[in-house]
Write a protein that binds this DNA or RNA. Structure first.
Length: 556
DNA sequence: AGACTATGGACCC
DNA sequence: TGGGTCCCCTAGTC
């Protein structure tokens, strides 16, 4: 406490506040307190960006006339005075001069965005329209009978069962479950490394570092040999790798002459396999599609321009029922549907327009009659039936999955087990205040209603989780968050397991706090540490300290 | 603890 | 159509 005598030694200080900041400070109690303390002491802090002092030294010496300090806060986003953007505790306050960070519309901020309260944002389902395209016939004959009508009760894997942290040396970019072995998860990272993890045995993990030289964008299992995988990379190659040995061969190299500058360097993002035709389909960052025959390892024909020339194609998906129907998406703001039998430039069956880059586009996993897209305009879109009117989506769901150059792009994915083909999982960008901690949940969304079914969090996961994959057979979610991998199971189920709900977290690799090791081999098994959720904390972050002190959820 | 940075897309002209 | 500049709720390292 400042002594009273000190107060009298200084002239009275008046603090002039902006009316704007006064209005916007309803949630800024902490900030206000600080200001009041400063007032008592008559001292200003470095936090105040500008201060207008009436610097009349005569008056100061006499100690008569009050000094007026104008506390004009400067926003770090728009550089304007009167408000501040940034975290206030665990809640982020938007710059009010910018469009809403969530829905991208001006006039309000994320805190007051209507889509923050309810994620439901549907448009009237598109009317069915009689067309005479071949898809119509496919639909009526093959697909319509298999469409389910009953909606199941969703089982949400909402508790971390085990994890490997610092497993990859760079952020995780893709995940894939093994098609037959239930406990095997494959992961790719930004450096091009491939991880093979047996999360049933937690410690059994392997990282192969010599397959690609940069971002591993996509993986697919060989449909006839599940020991082998195809992987597509930004190094411009498709590799064919034996999971047991890590030995790989190159199926295609789009940069045979090496680096000739950014204008010619080809990168492969989207990849899928048409098992009927026996071809691997990939697309590059210049808008071209390539097909490689699995049996002969030869390219089929020439590259076909499927998106705007010079733009990146990021996603390729073959229809699960009709593999010749192809769905692609990319940076030209379109998702497009093609028929592989008649494919050439500008022969797309439908062009699904988006407002921004389309990160992903997936057919629904069972019937293939719905399409789910993730676009950088912060909206998920669903086309209810690819056989209806495709002029507009049947539903748009506002959801925070902003583009950020430092994050793997978000991709909403279907739950492959949901017979109603409604449930989707997608990581969330904006954080939410959970007991004083800012955490980024993973959202489960019912795409048929737009409702948020569940948001799952774990205090150990403090980073954004853009990569999520639901298990094809079990109620398991795999998450890639920064360099770490997490396996989630439903709470009830976890308790049935013999080990109780003891969560295992393996810290793999270098630079773990007590070791101080640098440049260690991140796949070095001896570097592992196991933590159980009951006894120890993974690491005592601010977040966890806060969480351990509070028990109730105070959000919303 | 704070500075630094890798790095992709939008938007401007 | 292309180069320059800005974005600024990242994560990890030095």
């Amino acid at each position: 406490m400042a002594p009273l005598t000190r107060r009298t030694a200084f002239p009275k200080v008046l603090i002039e506040r902006d009316s704007d900041s006064e209005q916007s400070s309803s949630e800024e109690e902490e900030g206000e307190e600080e200001v009041l303390e400063e007032e008592d002491d008559g001292v200003t802090t470095a936090n105040e960006k500008t201060e207008n002092l009436e610097e009349d030294s005569d008056i100061k010496r006499k100690g008569k006339a009050p000094i007026t300090i104008s506390l004009k806060k400067v926003c770090k986003v728009c550089k304007k005075q009167g408000h501040e953007a940034g975290f206030k505790g665990a809640t982020y306050i938007d710059c009010p001069r910018k469009p809403c960070f969530l829905c991208k519309k001006p006039g309000h901020t994320t805190l007051t965005c209507p889509h923050r309260v309810s994620t439901e944002h549907g448009v009237v389902p598109a009317p069915r329209k009689k067309t005479f395209k071949p898809l119509e016939y496919v639909f009526e004959r093959q697909l319509r009978p298999s469409l389910p009508s009953i909606k199941p009760k969703y089982v949400i894997p909402d508790q971390v069962n085990c994890a490997v942290v610092r497993y990859h040396s760079r952020r995780v970019t893709c995940l894939e479950f093994h098609p037959t072995k239930n406990n095997i998860l494959l992961s790719g990272d930004k450096k091009g490394q491939l991880g093979v993890w047996d999360f049933g045995k937690v410690y059994e993990k392997m990282v192969y570092g010599n397959i690609h030289s940069c971002i591993l964008n996509n993986m697919r299992f060989n449909p006839t040999n599940d020991c082998m995988i195809y992987s597509a990379s930004s190094d411009g190659t498709i590799s064919y790798t034996d999971l047991e040995t890590g030995l790989s061969s190159s199926l295609m190299n789009l940069n045979p002459d090496g680096w000739q500058g950014p204008n010619t360097w080809k990168m492969i993002y989207g990849m899928d396999i048409n098992s009927e035709k026996g071809v691997v389909l990939v697309a590059d960052n210049f808008g071209f599609l390539y097909m490689v025959d699995i049996r002969t390892n030869h390219r089929n024909g020439n590259a076909i321009l499927i998106h705007k020339k010079g733009t990146k194609v990021v996603g390729i998906h073959c229809n699960p029922i009709q593999p010749d129907i192809l769905l692609t998406c990319g940076n030209d703001h379109f998702a497009r549907i093609w028929d592989l039998r008649y494919i050439e430039a500008e022969t797309s069956i439908y062009d699904l327009k988006h407002k921004r880059v389309v990160n992903s586009a997936f057919f629904s996993p069972l019937s293939g009659t719905k399409i789910l897209t993730t676009s950088q305009d912060n909206r998920l879109r669903i086309w209810d039936s690819i056989f209806g009117n495709m002029d507009s989506p049947s539903r748009e769901i506002v959801h925070s999955h902003d583009f950020n150059r430092h994050l793997t792009p978000f991709k909403a994915e279907w739950d492959p087990k949901d017979p109603s083909e409604s449930l989707a999982v997608v990581g969330r960008y904006i954080s939410e205040n959970y007991n004083g901690a800012a955490l980024h949940p993973i959202d489960f969304i019912d795409t048929s209603t737009g409702q948020l079914v569940a948001e799952v969090i774990d205090p150990n996961i403090t980073t954004i989780s853009p990569v999520n994959k639901l298990h094809p057979r079990e109620d398991i979610l795999a998450t890639g968050s920064s360099r770490s991998l997490f396996i989630w199971k439903p709470k009830e189920k976890s308790e049935l397991v013999e080990e109780k709900d003891e969560r295992k977290i393996v810290v793999g690799g270098r630079a773990e706090k007590k070791r101080g090791k640098r440049n260690g081999d991140i796949s070095d098994e001896s570097d592992d540490e196991v933590f159980s959720s009951k006894s120890k904390k993974l690491k005592s972050t601010k977040t966890q300290r806060k969480l351990s002190h509070r028990s109730t959820k105070d959000k919303r």
